[in-house]
Every structure is written in structure tokens, then in C-alpha cells.
Nucleic acid binder design. Structure first.
Lengths: 215, 215, 215, 215
DNA sequence: CATGAATGAGTATTCATTCAT
DNA sequence: GATGAATGAATACTCATTCAT
């Protein structure tokens, strides 16, 4: 541990296909090792070995262990957001209620892409140093959801769009995340729809300010 | 000679008091160090030093670093649950809407007791080994909330109480937690009530199944 | 580990029955723990606990861990020599061949008194520090055997009695010890006599200088 | 890129030579430290320092302190057996009495190669864990000696060759070992032959069953 | 560019021993 | 005398990182 403050940005942009393959292999190996051994036992030497790359080469492309984990998180987030973004596209032209259902379903699907990795990333990976500001999933989601709300503005009775987006995204993420990680029973094939249904209802009721209907 | 119980009461008490003080100092020091240095840099030696206790004494009472962290988490949870339990007592005799507001307020208060510690515990502390099953806050909360729902059963239209408790507790926890940890802006003094208000509305709308009112 | 060179002599002669009982309990506990946990894992705290005595009391009677082990070795040697001495008494009036058989049998019996302890003492206990010069068994045996040879001097054709005693005692001890520790097969009930027989023959042939009979 | 075997031969050889030198230095340093400080005070850090190697490198090649000691023991045994094996070759074509003398002489020589190390290994090194089954010297010796006996079967009157090998090897080893370790007087230059002579006679008399000549 | 031998600060943990009560 | 809480030096071992080849 000679370096005080490890770099986090990649040392070089992989300019050649060969280098690109190495980088990919390293990120993939990191994910695999993270799942297999946990964060603490995932050493750079082990990762290099699993990637079939020398430890020296690893440090040619990633200046620190943290930078590897950051790369894994970013890749995972990209995968997640790909699904979520597609759902937003689908939801665009649908009525609110239906659209929300699509979004919730996408959130669940997203969390199910690689639950083991998601769990390690969420539970074992300390958010310190370079990882301090790496969020799982949400960052972009708030903005996108806000746009979605804007499009439906006239159907809704919302003043603070930002706050509403916060409430919705945070709730949906928490419910799907917690279910995936801690409540496998809730995600059993025959019950998934139930969770989906409840979550949609929660959000829909909130957005429509249905409580106004009650005096 | 075989010294089963030959201690005079005063000696025993004296000893226990001393030992108890040591234990307390260690737990407190662990919390402090966790906040100051983060989980990874919180070494047992550092903790012992901060507690003004020798490393040997630390291991007399805590068999591992993990056990210290577990003690901190448990203490923190106790603090949290004290607040939350009190809120449930207060909420008992109030109408649902009012009661929910109290509970949400308590959740926010709870998360504000020691937000820095809560953050470290939530974000940096890997949930592996002995820490695998140590939840922050929620464990008991689900049960208590379920009881609360039962008492209000006739006001509500809920079939699956467990699922409803899961949805409510998870949402409330996530909203208050995320606000405390990541959105200080939302918790600014003049806006806290806004969050409180929105959260209550979210939960109230969900529990009353207001969406039934819309065809 | 504050003390550089631990004491080895008992701190006080146990003058009272009570004290004597404590000392006994400690020596017995040390033997038990040595067998159960091995030398390295036999800590003074564990020994004190097993003896039902406080660690402080332990150090009242034994100035160091080593001194405890010395006491165990000495007790074990005493037990061994009791058996061996009795055999010498029995052998005194018997013809050489018969006498030797008795001595060999006693050596085997002696090693079988507490083989587990004997093994730990022989294999795990480093002969350094105060334990450097603590021999198992042999010390006195050489002298006694020499006396025995002297009494049979006229039957034998030996010049150097010391050397002869060395050869005999060392061989007998090695054969019985090695058999007990490493060759349980050789000590099986139906074969013990065989070992006994062979050992006697070895020694008898040697002492009678039977090789003189061959040209 | 996946770097299976892309090394140029010179690089590989260079690397291996360096690594080999490190391993050798570590084994040699372990032996030296064992002799100088004793088993208990021989820490891995001290060994690494004495070898002029970092503690990290030590653990690159030896997974534990024990494994270092095992390496030393094996090297020592190899040295011993080299001498003993040579003696068996020499003894093959000689008459029994002469052959035995050669073997006994070799046993003495073997124990004199590095008596200080032999002593530490024999007396201080606990035979637990990985060291449990590491014998000094004897393992192979029994088998080789048995073969030797087989070749001389017709000169002897032995039924149980295994038992006879056990008796002979154990005795020879014990006598030479004990003399080297505990009785320097017996090994004084002018007396070595005496021990040699007596030992040979002991074994020869036993193997020839000379006691049969007496009724 | 790639390699992998080497580094060494840092970690958790043990245990013989002391001494205030 | 007896107690047991406290001590802290010492140990084996890990792992992110460097750099000579």
C-alpha cells in the first residue's frame, strides 16, 4: 500500500482492439471475483489471474483496485439503465397507469439482471474514496423520471416535480431492490405481479393526488 | 480455593462497573472511529487507542472487529427503535392520517439522531460474515407496522397485510434514509415538512386504496 | 510478555494443605490441557480456568508457564521411575535373562501409563529455556542400570560399564518409546510379548558379548 | 494478450533463477535462525530479514512458518539419507559384520553433519500441524534396512524382518542421536570408534540370534 | 507493451504476566 | 492470600502496488 490516494481514472484509453479486450476481461473478471469471493477477498492479483492477465498489465489499464470496481459499477448501471430507458420509451405513449406499470416492471427486471453482483455491489462495497459518489442505478433515473412526469403534467396535480420524482424513484428502487436482495419470497414467479401491482398502485395513487378526493 | 463464588459483593460490583465502563468506551470509540476514519481504516488498534484501553482489553470483551461493529449497529438500532416505538404508541389513538404523519416524522427524526454514523453503517459497512444479517432499523419495524395495520384493518381495504407492511416500511425507510444521506437540500429546516407531507400522502393513498375511487 | 527470563523454581513451597491442593490442581490441569490442546495452545489462562483457580493464584505458585510444564514433566518422570524402580527391585534376585525381561516389560508399562501426555511432552514440548535439560525418563535410569550391571559384573564381560549402560538404556527407551508413539501395531496385545522378547534378546546378547563365541 | 507463454526463454530463466535463489536463501536463513534463536523465537519476519528478502516474498514461496521448517527438515533429511544411502551401497558386498560397521559409522557421520540444526529440529520443533508427520531420518531408513536384511537372509535366523528392521534402525538412530545430542564425551575423537564398535556388536549379536548358542 | 518477482506497511489477534482491589 | 481486569509486545500473514527485466 504505497500509494496514498489511488487514481481512479483509467490510465489510458484503450486504443487498440487488443487493449480493449484486456480491459473487458479485467472488468468481467472483477465482477466474477466480486461475486465469488466478496469485496474484501477480491484482490487485484486474483482479478488479474482470473482475467488471464499479468498483474502488471492490470495496472497498465486500471490505476487501482477501486478503479476496477468503479468500472464494474458503471457497467452494471449501464445495463440497468438500458432496460429502464427502453421502458421509458415504451411508456411514453401509454396512459399513465399503464406506463407506470411498465416502468415498475422494468425496475424489477433490471434488478434481476445480475442479482448476485447487485447484492455485492450494494452490500459489501464500501462507498468510500473513489466509490463515494457512485450510486447504484438512480443518478440518471431521477432526471428521466422527471421528464416523464413533465410530459404527464396535465394529468397530475403536482407542484414540485423534483420532489415527486425523488419520492417515486426512491420508492420504486427501494421496493424492487429490497425485494430482490432480501425477500426472495416476494419475487417468486407467482407473486412478482403482486409486487408490481402494489408498487404501481402506490405510485399512481401518489401522483394522482387521490387523497384530494377525500375530505 | 476453587474460587467458585467467593467474591464479596462490593468487589464484584466494582469489577463489573469497571468492565462495563470499558465495554461502553469501546463501543463509543468504535462509533467515533467509524465516522472519522471509515470502516476500512477503523482498525482494532485504533479503536482501542481511542477508547483509552489496551488492545488486549478490547479482545477481552470483543472477540473480533466485527463484533465491535455489531455492537455499534445494535446500539444504533436500539436508539432508532426507541424513537420509532414511541411514535407507534403516540399514533395508536390517532386517526390513520394523523398517525401516519407521526410515524413518518419519527422515521425522519430517527435517521437524524446520528446521520454520520448511520451513513457509515449503511454505506461503508460490508454485510458479510457476522454482519451478514444485521439489518439497519427495519427488522422489527415490519412487525410493528403490521400490528399497526391490523388495528386499522377496518379503515383499510387490504388483503395481504405482510405485503402492505413491506411496501410501507420499505418506502418510508428509503425516503427518509435517502433524504438524510444524499439530499440534505430536502431536509433543510423549511422543507422537512414537505417531505413529511409527501411521504404521508404516499402511504396514506396506498393504504386507503384510493385508486379504487377512479374507474 | 514482560518478563525476559521467566523463573522456573516454585515461588513458595506449599505449606498448607489448601495450597498443596491448588498446586496439584494446577499441575493436573496443565497435563490435561497439554494433552487436549497441545503445547502451543496451552495458555496459562486456560490452565488456571481448568484448575478452577484464578490466573493470579496460578502465578502465586508458578512463576511461569514453563515452570508448570516442568512440574508436569517431573511428575510424569516420577511415575515412570516408580514403575522402573520396582522392576529393578524385582529383577535383583533373578538371573540376568529373566531380570532383563522384567526391566524391558517395565519400560513398556511405563510408557503406557499416559501415552498421550508422554507424546505431547516428547513431541511438542520445545526443550528450550528452563526445559532445556529436562529429560524424559532416562536421567536416573542410566545410574540405576549401571548399578544393576555392577551386580552382575561377573556374569558379563564388560569393560566400560558406563558405555554399556548408555547402550542398553538408550536402546530400551528408544524401542519402547518409538513403539508406543509411532507403532501402535507393534504394541497390539498379541504382539507386545514379541517386542518384549526381541528387546530382551537384543540386550542380553549384547551384555553377554555372545559375539565372542563366534570366531 | 492473454499471456499464456509469451516469455522469451532468457527472461523466463532469469526469473526462475532469481526466484530459486530467493527460495534457497529462505531455507538457509530458516536453518540459521532456527539454530541461533530456537524454534519459538524464529519468526517469519526474522527469517525474511536474515534471508535479505521481504516478508512478502517469503510468503510468495512459503505459505506458512511451518512450511519453511518442513523445507529445512526435508533438506536436512536429504543430506542425512545421502550419507546413509551411500553406506548401504558400500555395505552391499561386504560381509555382514563389516557392513554393519559401515552403516553405524554412516549414522554417526550423518548426525554430525549439522548437529546444532539436528538438535533444534529434534528437540524444539513441535510435531504438530504440518510437522506432525515429518520424521527425522528414519522413514526411509526402515525400508532400506529391511532390504539389506533380505539380502543377508540366509546368514540370519530371523522370522519377522519388519520387526528386526524396527529394532535395528531404532536402536542405531537412538544411540547415535543421543550420543551426538547429549553425550559429547562419548563422541570424543578417541572414543567414537568405541561407540561404533559397541553399536555394531549390539546389532550383530541380535541379528545372528547368538543367544541361541546358549541354552 | 507485458511480465511477475519483490515490496513492506498494515492488520487482526494471542497470551504470559502484573497489580490494584 | 486471592482475584481478574488490564496490559502491550509480539506474531503470522495479506495485498495493493512498483519496477527491473
Amino acid at each position: 500500500m504505497l500509494a496514498r490516494k489511488p487514481q481512479t481514472t483509467p490510465r489510458k484509453i484503450a486504443s487498440q482492439a487488443r487493449a480493449h479486450a484486456t480491459v473487458d476481461a479485467l472488468v468481467e473478471a472483477t465482477a466474477r471475483i466480486l461475486v465469488r469471493d466478496g469485496f474484501d477477498r477480491a484482490s487485484t492479483n486474483r482479478i488479474a489471474e482470473a482475467a488471464g492477465v499479468s498483474i502488471g498489465s492490470l495496472y497498465q489499464y486500471f490505476p487501482s483496485k477501486e478503479s476496477l470496481v468503479v468500472a464494474v459499477i458503471e457497467r452494471h448501471n449501464r445495463d440497468l439503465m438500458t432496460i429502464v430507458n427502453a421502458a421509458f420509451v415504451d411508456a411514453k405513449d401509454k396512459p399513465l397507469k399503464e406506463g407506470l406499470a411498465l416502468l415498475v416492471a422494468a425496475a424489477i427486471d433490471g434488478h434481476r439482471v445480475d442479482p448476485a453482483l447487485h447484492r455485492v455491489l450494494a452490500e459489501q462495497t464500501p462507498r468510500s474514496g473513489a466509490l463515494a459518489n457512485v450510486e447504484l442505478f438512480q443518478r440518471d433515473a431521477y432526471g428521466i423520471f422527471r421528464s416523464y412526469l413533465e410530459e404527464h403534467r396535465d394529468e397530475l396535480h403536482i407542484e414540485d416535480l423534483d420532489l415527486a420524482a425523488f419520492v417515486c424513484v426512491t420508492s420504486i428502487e427501494a421496493l424492487t431492490h429490497t425485494a430482490v436482495i432480501h425477500r426472495p419470497d416476494i419475487l417468486a414467479e407467482e407473486r412478482v405481479d403482486q409486487l408490481s401491482e402494489e408498487t404501481s398502485r402506490l405510485i399512481f395513487g401518489y401522483l394522482c393526488r387521490l387523497d384530494r378526493l377525500i375530505r
